[in-house]
Write a protein that binds this DNA or RNA. Sequence first.
DNA 1: GTACTTGCAAATTATTTGCCTGCCC
DNA 2: GGGCAGGCAAATAATTTGCAAGTAC
Lengths: 164, 164
Amino acid sequence: MDTPASADREGISRIERMCIERGLKMTGQRRLIARVLSESEDHPDVEELYRRAVAQDSRISIATVYRTVRLLEEKGILERRDFGGGRARYDQADRGQHYHLIDVDTGKVIEFADPRHREIAQEIAARLGFELVDHRLELFGRRFPEGQAPATPRRPGKPQDDEA
Amino acid sequence: MDTPASADREGISRIERMCIERGLKMTGQRRLIARVLSESEDHPDVEELYRRAVAQDSRISIATVYRTVRLLEEKGILERRDFGGGRARYDQADRGQHYHLIDVDTGKVIEFADPRHREIAQEIAARLGFELVDHRLELFGRRFPEGQAPATPRRPGKPQDDEA
DNA sequence: GTACTTGCAAATTATTTGCCTGCCC
DNA sequence: GGGCAGGCAAATAATTTGCAAGTAC
């Protein structure tokens, strides 16, 4: 009840609205991907996005998903992430500065924020003669053993993701 | 003049010594790769390692380079890095905790150390209920404009590397 | 109507692997 | 001497692209 009149109809997802604002031509496929993304609370890879999209409408190909996430990244709507699983994962770009902790045993991804990192990063860049343009930080951790010991104490396996 | 008698001959590279210590069978190819790595001050990718190796002895294939860096990584001699160029880059594992700043205009990589990041990372992990197993931090920066403005203010291009 | 999108399949890129031969310990 | 290592080429895996046909504005 608080959106501008022109886009007040139900069924317009948050990301679709952002696409429209940026003047993208909205096709059925793009609308679908936009909706899937808007409803995702996690960090899906392309394969996963494709799976969720096909489930709603089979008339989409994975090549289109690849093309669309790339487009949305160029438009600043998505950010590409690398959690070390060999596939790119996507994150909405306007969720504010945050980082990720990956559970090395389960692959789950937990978000957190902490302004100190940026400050220190900025200071270090300056000391080296640079203006900080961007920075990435990922933590890999193991849940404290409060129950039993985990089975595979290895390097981060294919990250899955938290469901919320 | 301070190395153990058994490996005192010139021509034994630092990394070859580490391989021997870990009981690896030393072939001509592995010795060559070890030497190339020992002489590298930067963060070469496999292709680059292969180029440097073939230049010294053409009887090596890129598959062997792939197999060898993987082996050395498993043995804890090398660390695989991802600077966002789509290829894995390698770093000697025993150089102590350090991070990288990538110049977004030139792709050059600069190393730096700062203990605060680890401390904060550890603290955050603990707050989230995790033991910190590993962490990655990369800064992307642009040299302060003290001469002229850079040409392409874009996202990090294929990282090259500092030559020293 | 026309330029932009899509689907499909083929192309690319980075990396791994099968297999048979060769060489290190 | 026997098993691990290496070369070569084919196999994977993720992602991109050419092209003909469809569609948004």
